[in-house]
Amino acid sequence: MINIDKKYILLGALFLTLVFVLVLIATGSVGAPVAEDQSTIPTQSPIDGNLDQANTIPPVTYNTDASKKQIEKKENRIPLTQSDLDAKQEILSLLPEGQSYGIIYSSENFNIEYVESLDLIKVEILSNSIEDIKTEAVNWFRDQGLSQEGVCNYPVDFYLGSGVVPDGGEIFSPIAPGC
């Protein structure tokens, strides 16, 4: 008898709790949605790590000032003289027949390639004697009738081929010697 009484007391307490909960739900004081959070579409995952963390460090140090000067020359071209324009045409005539871009000249130490879409003549340096090869390449252009001014203003652009590192660890510049 005593146990049964206890049970009913518990039931009574449960009933009271339920009534409270139902009253609270009905009046909306519990579980009312927060309006600000409702009108948003799913947010993206939080950004983790540094966005600007460099993934690779090149083995070569670049001359930033010279590189900047070179980019400015590419972006803001100084018109070539007529003789230099003619020389350029002569050089581009060395492209394989029917092609408007591609390799113009190849040697053991460098490749010369024309990129029509960017209107650039690029020299890829293939060995570590960087300055010597640069000089050798400039001489080749001069031999084709392009002036030093034309080499600098056009501009002829240098870059290092795969695995090429300057001999003395010098800082690399994409600008032709004498510019």
């Binding site: 600007d52 460099a54 993934n55 090149p58 670049y62 930033t64 590189s67 900047k68 070179q70 994409p174």
Partner: peptide, 16 residues
């Protein structure tokens, strides 16, 4: 990066 190119160390080759 808002155009900073800072992900690439080679940005220096572009004068940045």
């Amino acid at each position: 990066l808002k155009g900073s190119f800072k992900y690439w160390e080679c940005r220096k080759a572009a004068g940045i």
